[in-house]
């Protein structure tokens, strides 16, 4: 099937997780992520779509060129904790609290997972 052939040509294989709005497929996503190897990077499509907007302020892949903090190279654990602290207000921010409150803890985990691994795939 042509879809498979094209996928093989792709530098980064995107694993399919059947997601329909409102369906929580995080269990399936976790399962897929465990199969991650050095040759194949796994991107959760839900995490990707949640995370991409962050780059508008923080730079592509979190590589900031200006005053806004860069988070390229940070671990998923660091990012998850930071986002949760912004959400709760424990960590001071001007605008991050307003953004972080728009995501569930599970969504924050997915965003942290995306940016916490995307730089490893660039190596």
């Amino acid at each position: 099937m042509q879809v498979t052939i094209r996928s093989l040509l792709t530098a980064c294989l995107v694993f399919s997780v059947l997601l329909i709005a409102g369906t929580d497929a995080s269990a399936a996503a976790k399962k897929v992520q465990k199969k991650k190897t050095a040759e194949v990077c796994v991107v959760d499509p839900r995490g990707e779509i949640l995370a991409l907007s962050c780059a508008s302020c923080h730079g592509t892949d979190g590589k900031s060129v200006g005053i806004i903090p860069s988070f390229y190279g940070k671990s998923p654990e660091y990012l998850e904790a930071a986002l949760k602290d912004f959400k709760s207000g424990t960590r001071y921010s001007t605008v991050m609290i307003r953004h972080a409150k728009g995501y569930t803890d599970e969504e924050i985990r997915l965003i942290a997972e995306y940016f916490g691994t995307v730089w490893q795939n660039n190596k």
């Binding site: 879809v3 094209r6 399919s16 997601l19 839900r46 779509i49 991409l52 508008s56 605008v95």
Partner: peptide, 25 residues
């Protein structure tokens, strides 16, 4: 633009697009 990029890639792969997450600042 990013949501559309991710969606088109999924559609071209014969997969269901992830539900959108959109932001404005």
């Amino acid at each position: 633009g990013k949501v559309v990029a991710a969606s088109i890639i999924r559609l071209c792969q014969g997969k269901v697009p992830a539900p959108p997450s959109l932001v404005n600042t």
